[in-house]
């Protein structure tokens, strides 16, 4: 009993309650003691104040936002994919005949004099 009750009957009631808690049998007290010791042996959750927890979440959110923002900017600034070179492009649509006639074109090129010559 910790409070001073205003009415006498409350005082008597609380005294009865105190006595009932003090008069517990040995077996019950032993079980309570075992429960207490078992509870104390377990690991505990480390406690952080609410503001620290909130700050941690805010920091993590900020870090994520920065990471995604940076990745987005990099994606925007990434150089465009290189288009195929015109020379290579020229070969793309040529069929197998072109490759068979390469020798002919080489000969023609050698045989015909250049207009600048």
């Amino acid at each position: 009993m910790k409070n001073g009750p205003e009415e006498p009957w409350i005082g008597r009631t609380l005294a009865l309650l105190d006595r009932s808690a003090d008069d517990l049998d040995a077996a019950t007290l032993s079980r309570l003691r075992r429960a207490r010791h078992a509870a104390l042996e377990q690991p505990r959750v480390a406690w952080r104040p609410g503001w620290l927890l909130g700050g941690g979440f805010a920091g993590a959110a900020l870090a994520l936002a920065l990471a995604f923002g940076s990745a987005g900017r990099q994606a925007l600034q990434a150089p465009p994919r290189l288009a195929p070179a015109p020379a290579a492009e020229a070969f793309v649509d040529d069929g197998p005949e072109f490759y068979e006639d390469l020798d002919f074109y080489a000969w023609l090129d050698a045989a015909q004099p250049s207009p600048h010559d």
Partner: peptide, 19 residues
């Protein structure tokens, strides 16, 4: 009642023991 108190002790120590 003993089971409830034991559960309460476990949960209290685990969650709030560091307070």
């Amino acid at each position: 009642a003993l089971d409830l108190v034991q559960d309460a002790m476990f949960a209290f120590v685990r969650r709030y023991g560091a307070r």
